[in-house]
């Protein structure tokens, strides 16, 4: 190790030392305990009793709800993450122009992320109502088609929740806006000299310069979508109706841990989910070497 390498290692560790201290102090013990719980039968009150791989075995071979919840969660993630990503990039680009009252527009797109869910869920129930809801009324009056049953329909409940999740892109938009503000105007000037139109400029300048932010929003989108919980809990009461179509992974885990008093089983579920999310994230991170462009490098 050269002197520079040693100095860098020392400095690097020094800078991240707060996180290391916090991780060791607050996070590591709960993390290790939950690994341990996952190999036990633990009802929170009595001490855990070792059960080996029994929880994992039951999850894999003996629990239809688990597979259903996993499928629902993968479905939601597969549709919600790309939809939110595309919508938030589009809106951020629209919001990054010189247009009157832009600060008001920016605020508007962030509003759904601020309004308490207890207040807005009432609106969603109306918007998604099959008979008198806003979406189905619009479908009927504009296109003359009979809308689906949304949350009342086992096939449409998840699309309805995906649709709802797009309203919550305010945070991602803000992050993309911060990313857009870092795109050097000189690059656009060069592109314009080359005769590029707005779409060419977006494709050849904006998008490459946004890749670090896209990576961030993609990874965070994945982590959050796999643990999707609060919205569906408020909207459907958390029982997975109709017929298990909205029984999501985190919902089942929550029910198992604090209501069925199976903290060990829930921990096994949590660590399986952890592995899925980690695999997806590492996959994205490895591929990112090819598509993410850091201006600083």
């Amino acid at each position: 190790m050269t002197r520079l390498e040693r100095r860098n290692l020392r400095n690097g560790l020094l800078f991240i030392s707060p996180w290391i201290a916090g991780f060791l102090g607050f996070e590591l013990y709960p993390l290790l305990m939950s690994v341990y719980y996952s190999f036990t039968e633990f009802n929170v009150i009595q001490p855990p009793v070792w059960s080996g791989l029994a929880n994992y075995h039951e999850l894999f071979f003996d629990d239809p709800v688990f597979w259903r919840a996993l499928y629902n969660t993968l479905y939601f993630t597969a549709f919600s993450v790309p939809a939110c990503l595309a919508a938030s990039i589009g809106i951020a680009v629209l919001l990054n122009q010189k247009i009157p009252a832009m600060s008001v527009f920016r605020t508007i797109f962030f509003l759904p992320s601020i309004v308490p869910l207890v207040a807005s869920s009432v609106l969603w129930l109306w918007v998604l109502n099959p008979d008198s809801g806003l979406i189905n009324m619009a479908l009927k009056q504009i296109f003359g088609i009979e809308g689906p049953g949304w949350l009342a329909d086992a096939n449409w409940a998840k699309p309805a929740l995906v649709l709802m999740s797009v309203w919550g892109i305010g945070g991602a938009v803000v992050i993309f806006l911060a990313g857009l503000s870092d795109v050097p105007p000189a690059l656009y000037e060069v592109a314009e000299l080359d005769g590029a139109g707005p779409f060419r400029k977006f494709w050849n300048v904006t998008l490459p310069m946004l890749t670090p932010t896209i990576l961030f929003n993609l990874v965070m989108g994945l982590i959050n979508a796999f643990q999707y919980f609060t919205q569906v809990y408020v909207m459907t009461g958390g029982k997975g109706t109709p017929v298990d179509s909205t029984m999501f992974y985190a919902l089942y885990l929550y029910r198992s841990s604090f209501f069925y008093l199976r903290m060990g089983y829930a921990s096994a579920m949590a660590w399986l989910l952890f592995i899925v999310i980690l695999a997806a994230t590492v996959g994205v991170l490895v591929s990112s070497k090819r598509w993410v462009y850091y201006h600083g490098d």
Binding site: Y29, M33, Q227, M263, A266, W271, T281
Partner: peptide, 17 residues
């Protein structure tokens, strides 16, 4: 990756410890 990983475990199972 460890930093990122610490966000991937549902809070329900670490709440008790």
């Amino acid at each position: 990756v460890v930093v990122l990983a610490s966000m991937m475990l549902p809070y329900q199972v670490t709440l008790i410890p």
